[in-house]
Design a protein around this nucleic acid. Sequence first.
DNA 1: CTGAAAGCGCTTACAG
DNA 2: CTGAAAGCGCTTACAG
Lengths: 336, 336
Amino acid sequence: MKIGRRVTAEEVAKAVGVSRATVGFVLNDTPGQSISEDTRRRVLTAALQLGYRPNSAAQALARGYSDIVLLVLPDWPIDDVMHHLLTEIALALDEAGYTLVAWSPHVSGAGRPLWELIPADLVMGMAPFDAEQVAALHANGVAIFPEPDDPGQSGHGGGRFAAGPRLQVDHLADLGHRRIAYARPADPRLAFLAGDRFRLVHEQAGRRGLHVVDDRVTDLGSAAAAVRDWLNAGCTAVVAYNDYVASVVTGAALRAGVAVPDELSIIGHDDSPLAEVFVPSLTTVRINLRAIAQEVAAFALRKIAGAPAGLGDGPAIAATLVPRESTATPARNAVR
Amino acid sequence: MKIGRRVTAEEVAKAVGVSRATVGFVLNDTPGQSISEDTRRRVLTAALQLGYRPNSAAQALARGYSDIVLLVLPDWPIDDVMHHLLTEIALALDEAGYTLVAWSPHVSGAGRPLWELIPADLVMGMAPFDAEQVAALHANGVAIFPEPDDPGQSGHGGGRFAAGPRLQVDHLADLGHRRIAYARPADPRLAFLAGDRFRLVHEQAGRRGLHVVDDRVTDLGSAAAAVRDWLNAGCTAVVAYNDYVASVVTGAALRAGVAVPDELSIIGHDDSPLAEVFVPSLTTVRINLRAIAQEVAAFALRKIAGAPAGLGDGPAIAATLVPRESTATPARNAVR
DNA sequence: CTGAAAGCGCTTACAG
DNA sequence: CTGAAAGCGCTTACAG
């Protein structure tokens, strides 16, 4: 579809009666051009009143860069936490003069992927993606964070980003729980990330001598049955994928007459606003989003600079326990 | 920052040994060119293995359009509902061959606004913006939805989008409540929209003969005091800005020993996932996001086509009551 | 201080 | 079927 054309710098030049180049110099504040104050003012005035706005495509083409970083996200539900992370990334990149565009590919048909449409200096994807997605992204020149080859990284939840799930387990272990369950979200788009987090929980449970009795998708419909099964299997606590899943499990337990935390402790992940408000308030784990955002930004800047972008040896991303009402020592069903 | 250069179509042409134009015709599947199957295949193969990807800036410049719609959002917290709305808008535009970029300007410094950087066919803002913002956006050629001049529209909450707040009031009136309070969110970024919704609640309350006793910002810290004050003032119900605010008020009430809904009814807005999970589950109002999304998309397409983009006489956006546990008939403090 | 011009990498008539 | 070329609207040396 053709677009109504706009005023060009050429026309501004004509209106003022100066050369095309002069207009460019004034508009871009090009240093070392000594243009008379009067000329400068006239150009600026004319540009303003003609409604001149530079054509960004032409600008990007001529300059060879655009100062845009395009971040491709998995097709996740974007919750408060994700949104917060994106904001922090945008801020970190902004400090370096880059503007962040966050975009999730959608299923459908006619529209083309954004990385074919906008002139980004860097297109990067934020893991986890499955193998097929990684291949497709790489074929399109999309860098992926963290780098899948990076040792010690298993998607977004692996390696240095493992503190959250570990802390969930540690908290329950410290309270004296021995048998726990893992509750996954129902949304299939989260299956991959949930798998990552579950693996970390499972490993840490092994280290701390806990039994992970069950690992189950939990939505509003199925949560009540899951809670019953877990109690029957001797569970005294549940690790939830995130605070929303924790609230689903908690809500189901309460409605089934199971006291939280007296009969079942439940810990969430993310410290989303919901966790503090829920009754009972939800014990959870807060991860250092700003630190992750700064890694992402640093990764992007290194890639743009053409440097090898391996994550190197930065410190592990910290997680903090946020203890609230939904966890306590096991009062019943405690195994030895 | 200069970017590492990429393979051009020129180089593909050289590699294959055909003219630059031929490459373009093959790549774009230009009709009416009758290129031999062999040539076509060789071009495609070479492009693939050289890793050719078209330069989008050059493409946009030469074509004069980009198939991008840039949607500028107020700097809101993006919750599930907003995200859902954006997804629906993206889908609706996708059907017309456009790719949506959603972007919120952030406060800070170095990065330039996205509309100066990407070659969008249309830049539109989704209201509400305050007067100052509207002026700034207009100066940058940003179209605003809904059009502020449009009669019967007062920002995003006005006119045809008024069904939600009205329904909140109607539900409470139908139940027999006579004195109600309005609970606003603490986030200052939402002040403008909250003002819109409050106005609609106030008007509808007047129509239904209800008294709006108080209108107050409610966060976790202040909610308990607010609940006490409301009860003392004879309120039997609260209209909340959205489900999160409703959950804050409900949580505070329960912790203060005030029974919900027996002593205080609370109704939210949006039907976010939280509303169903909370204990007690929250009565709320669901708005037809898809209908709004389709309006937004239609508005965009009309603007791009250069047509007058007035919203015209579309039907009002529907809202549906979602009755749950947090509202009931007033048991106490009922006025006459 | 200013003008004439090449070049960014595409698209797309226009000749052959 | 293919080649030579103008043009999109900028930036930016290079002469004057």
